[in-house]
Nucleic acid binder design. Structure first.
Lengths: 241, 241
DNA sequence: CTATGATAGTGTTAGTTATACACTATCTAA
DNA sequence: TTAGATAGTGTATAACTAACACTATCATAG
């Protein structure tokens, strides 16, 4: 709370203030595999290390606005799923000064990807979450594993997976996405049954041809207000947040 | 991320920095009812309004250390359950200056309560969550409802409820605690069955006499490493976080 | 000393959901 | 025409949920 101050005599300089940054863990699916966006640092500290994209917050923007700004600066995408994760504030996490970082997670569709290398970094790249760089800058390994954990746990009781898929997809593609993120195989028959019973999907007339039997394509229903919108569970296990 | 700076030429004054505070939503059970601790503000802004206890973060302490410090300053308790909730950072949330607040939730046992009125506030009081003040300071209504939502949802798949109970308790007391927080009645028989099957409780030889049949007292098992420690579910419904 | 009310605790059953796995369907390409 | 590949359906059993009836043990009133 904010009650250490005298009325009308508040002096902003009275207390030391930490720097506040926003880091955005950006996930996408590339060739059916879960990837995360990292940038390679150009300067001290952690020069040359890969890091989660982010930056300082402006004084006139909300945390979410800052996260959306960062996201757009790095990938050019807007209107994507964004969620606050956790705030990391260990006094030693940045060697320059006290930096408190509010971490966000974003899910973007594979389609819209126009990566931009900012002048603060050497490179920007998508990394498969199963093959990440050995060491990341700052405490970003911790941030990233927190994000992956959250993604997994929310996948089990929300419709988050749809945020990663294109507008039209097959049921087995959806199943594959779940398997990718959960890291385990799901039963085909049970998946079909559950997803159909959920009423979350809308059948389309489109099909996609492949090597075997062509597959029917579906769309995620965004209309339906209440029912089951966010309850689509696969397992009982759950992790603490 | 923190990469806008030149190596070794980092100038802390280069960017405006927001103030960062920690607010701690402290829950307890008093006479079997869920209560939350609020303090009454002495100064502008929101003079006279009730607020969630909190304060500015020191430059050399972690977020959690700051939360524990606040908690101890208000209630004198240590070693309690503490969890980071969410970070609130709307630019307009405090009329004095830009203030970003990291909210924590603490669960304390009814026993240890030595409230201290700090010189920043008129009063400190436990409020039943079913009878809160009409309006709270800042965006604290939002913070509080977030905390209650989190408490509810975690109750369903963790052993959080035990943090609110004394060391020895009866199974029906535990059931009552669940009912209090979830806001719904649970079936006695099913509760007995589930809680016993969970293996979370340890029977003691103690009983408590009352008006009817005396009740056996149980203890929460802290030993058991893995199994079911944090899976004790009551309902299927779940809310997004 | 017995009945009544109050609280504690157990048992049972029907309906639902999960799990595993076998089966059928429709396409391409040899 | 058949084999391989992928898509999609059906079903039996086990496990779990939800509702509720039942039994147990105390205090106290008559």
């Amino acid at each position: 709370m904010e009650e250490q101050e005298q009325a009308h005599t508040y002096d902003a300089a009275k207390y030391d203030r930490p720097s506040v940054t926003i880091d955005v863990v950006i996930f996408t699916l590339i060739e059916r595999e879960l990837h995360v966006l990292l940038v390679q640092r150009k300067r001290w500290p952690y020069e040359g290390f890969w890091a989660i994209p982010g930056g300082f917050i402006n004084m006139d923007e909300s945390l979410e606005q800052a996260a959306r700004r960062e996201l757009e600066e790095e990938t050019g995408v807007r209107d994507v799923y964004l969620e606050q994760l956790y705030t990391f504030g260990d006094p030693q996490r940045d060697p320059r000064t006290r930096v408190i970082s509010v971490a966000y997670m974003a899910l973007v569709r594979a389609e819209a990807q126009h990566l931009r290398v900012s002048d603060e970094s050497h490179a920007v790249r998508w990394f498969p979450v199963r093959a990440l760089p050995e060491a990341l800058a700052f405490d970003h390994e911790q941030v990233l594993s927190y994000a992956i954990g959250r993604l997994r746990s929310k996948l089990e009781y929300t419709t988050l997976a749809f945020q990663l898929l294109p507008e039209l997809f097959s049921i087995l593609e959806l199943k594959h996405t779940y398997e990718q993120i959960l890291g385990e195989k799901l039963d085909k028959g049970n998946f079909y049954r559950k997803i159909k019973e959920s009423g979350l999907l809308e059948e389309t007339t489109h099909v996609r041809e492949g090597r075997g039997r062509p597959t029917r394509l579906w769309r995620f229903r965004t209309d339906r207000s209440g029912d089951k919108q966010f309850v689509f569970r696969w397992r009982e296990d759950r992790v603490a947040r």
